[in-house]
Amino acid sequence: MNEEVIKAEGLTKVFNKSLVAVDHVNFSVKDGEIFGFLGPNGAGKTTTINMLITVLKPAEGKASVLGYDIVKQANEVRKVIGVVPQEYTADEDLTGYENIMLCADLYGIPRETAKKRAIELLELVELTDFKDKRVETYSGGMRRRLELACGLINRPKVLFLDEPTLGLDVQTRAATWDYIKRLKKEYGMTLFMTTHYLEEADALCDRIAIIDHGKIIVTGAPSELKDSLGGDIITISIKENVDVVDIIRSVEHVKEVKNENGAYRIKAEAGEVTAPLIIEALRKKGYTVTKLSLTEPTLNEVYLEYTGRAMRDIEESREAFRAQRITLRRARGG
């Protein structure tokens, strides 16, 4: 299936009549893929997600989820989506189980079905042993998993994840990625996520859109975007003090060669295949390779290439900033 599950056309949001948070954004998400919005804080990621999940109304443009218009058919959209917000929204004074049942009540899921699903979901996110404990005793990772479970109670066809690993340590983050992958496999959903972690986008997403200042700068699969930078970088040194640029350039896939004081900096597609070919070509001519390194471009380089600067931290607004701080504090405190 290649159906478009989410489609946004000219989607725009303006705050306080002047601050353009999202600026005529166009994109579409295909059935079954994980689509990521990557960008720094304040780029408009959360605003976009809030429009898609019908919490905010767009100022201009339109978008649809599973064919339902996010403004005119907001209620239909709400029924078929699941949301895992950036903050820990589970009620600290309730138990994990009570929190999931609260979500079920909001969706109007029949009680018996809801109970069965809650148990099943708690099992899936490995919180069964803690289901009757109050959420205030949970750690950051457990809270995040509980949010995932809550977001899945209505068996959504599209799941929205806003910064799913914000404030988590490296191990918990990796574990959360595993949960997300497993849940996606289990339920065959389409996922839309935002992140400002490049490695997260790289690890999870089938396709990403880099967004900055409310505009989408580029869209594509992570590998495609990396390839667009011109491939991998191979650095080679040889024993002999001779210029071998021409030999290297004649090797297949090599795009660019530079001699930097005896070290050759080579841009090549599929570096892991090309590097042995280069060694082979040099050896045939009687040269000995003494050093070789291979660097694959990271999304960081892609990001820098397109936005022209490194990730920066600016606060979206007082409120967002504070909310983020609260989230972080809860993550640490737990």
Partner: peptide
């Protein structure tokens, strides 16, 4: 963020 989550449900 609880309010936004509730608002995203039907």
């Amino acid at each position: 963020g609880f309010l936004d989550k509730v608002l995203s449900t039907p």
